[in-house]
Design a protein around this nucleic acid. Structure first.
Ligand SMILES: NC(=O)c1ccc[n+]([C@@H]2O[C@H](COP(=O)([O-])OP(=O)(O)OC[C@H]3O[C@@H](n4cnc5c(N)ncnc54)[C@H](O)[C@@H]3O)[C@@H](O)[C@H]2O)c1
Ligand SMILES: NC(=O)c1ccc[n+]([C@@H]2O[C@H](COP(=O)([O-])OP(=O)(O)OC[C@H]3O[C@@H](n4cnc5c(N)ncnc54)[C@H](O)[C@@H]3O)[C@@H](O)[C@H]2O)c1
Lengths: 206, 206
DNA sequence: CGCCGCTTGTGAAATTCTTCACAAGATAGG
DNA sequence: CCTATCTTGTGAAGAATTTCACAAGCGGCG
């Protein structure tokens, strides 16, 4: 299969959201031009992105919102739910835990870990916070696929090593460090400071 | 001046962090190869990125950590502090507000806004939460440059319109919507769901 | 049925980004 | 002073991504 660029995947994810909005607004059908307009891109880009995976549209008509929704869900692997663990029950972790969109999008948080003995054992929305040492057993037992890492930077690599050893295959990292993971494990970073610095650069050079 | 790609700016930001780490570890000098290794890129890429802005290295030796630190800070516009406002004092907003790294990196949060009357007036670390309606006056009075938007998706555009009208020139948006801003205003989005879906795609296709 | 207006899917062109590869500067050691 | 060893800075090549542009399919209407 052709290699799919990261930016194409991001755009698919964006189209998915736009389609959900269009669906909620009652649209039956949508054109590449409309998607482009709402997504801040071009119609050619939209068609190219979709054409990487097949021909989903009808010439003259556009795309069926329902069909495209289900196609993109299937492309992104969102037909079934993913089993997710959250590591780090701090300020950011608690915001993420209570963020309902994850569940709505198919990401099911099934375990929370923290190393602070004062936090271990407390209940978070029906889920007990587990100790760090339990990562291996719980991740295996719950068959966790994806872990969200929200621990301090200097603990992140160690946490990730444990997660990987326990079989986690995808990691979303919020700590400002460049983590090492073996090939075969997918890693994404969210680095808010880096985004702010991007703004700083933009403001600085105009 | 040559156009600088967004990815180049992201890498500069990364190099900055790596340099700070190298500096803390006592390094006087660092080569493009070392930076590349730690940053997960190639030495040619590092040199190319830097060469967009000048020649900072010494052949045979590498780069002076101190000098490169200050060069990159200056390139990114981080010599002086930025005046930042946070809009949305919810779960995510409170995590962001208490995140000390921002201050350390030169982003100074000087105002917090929320529309919830129960929150307005309460103190957050010495800063009173202001009502939404005060955005215009406070942003002007405090000469805010950058706003962090952490309100629900359906309120985000309206909030941004107010911010822009009040003179904010950079926006970091956490709400899952594609915002419209006039040209001249820089906008960055942090979309956690989109990152998770990227992981889903990666896990799905291997 | 035939024409018209609209929109897709896609090669090809254009542009942007990354990697290569090497001349040349810098240092150290003899 | 000369040689060996590093490492930069950068054109040029190569790869990837985006944009262009148009043939062809589809539906509606007279
Ligand atoms: N707070 C923010 O808005 C924000 C924004 C961007 C990035 N981050 C990053 O996210 C991470 C968490 O930030 P935070 O503000 O929630 O910090 P925090 O201190 O509030 O929470 C960190 C939590 O991790 C736990 N922890 C520490 N070591 C651990 C380990 N080995 N295993 C499991 N848990 C461990 C701590 O007990 C604590 O509960 C940090 O890396 C931070 O840089 C935070
Ligand atoms: N919680 C998370 O982890 C998380 C993760 C990713 C994205 N987000 C996004 O960040 C945003 C905030 O999320 P949250 O979890 O903090 O929600 P929240 O409901 O806890 O907080 C939202 C806050 O915004 C305030 N608000 C609403 N309308 C406003 C307005 N017009 N002006 C000023 N303030 C207003 C509310 O009073 C509330 O305090 C949402 O768009 C959400 O989708 C949140």
């Amino acid at each position: 299969m052709k290699k799919i660029s990261e930016s194409a995947v991001r755009r698919l994810s964006l189209y998915l959201r736009l389609l959900q909005e269009a669906d909620a607004a009652g649209a039956e059908t949508i054109s590449s031009g409309e998607l482009a307009e709402r997504g801040g891109t071009t119609s050619a880009q939209v068609r190219k992105d979709l054409s990487l995976f097949g021909s989903f549209g009808k010439r003259g008509l556009g795309y069926s919102v329902q069909e495209l929704l289900s196609r993109i869900r299937s492309i992104l692997g969102l037909q079934s739910r993913w089993r997710v663990a959250l590591v780090g029950a701090g300020k950011l972790g608690s915001a993420l835990f209570s963020y309902r969109d994850f569940e709505a999008r198919g990401f099911n948080i099934r375990a929370v870990f923290d190393s602070d003995p004062r936090k271990v054992g407390t209940q978070w929305g029906g889920l007990g916070i587990r100790a760090d040492e339990e990562i291996d057993s719980v991740v295996r037992a719950e068959e966790i696929d994806i872990a969200i890492v929200a621990v301090p930077a200097d603990a992140a690599q160690q946490v990730v090593d444990r997660l990987v050893k326990a079989g986690v295959r995808g990691i979303l990292n919020f700590a400002p460090v460049r983590l090492k993971v073996p090939r075969g494990v997918a890693l994404k970073n969210v680095d808010v400071t880096l985004e702010l610095e991007g703004l700083s650069f933009a403001l600085n050079t105009r």
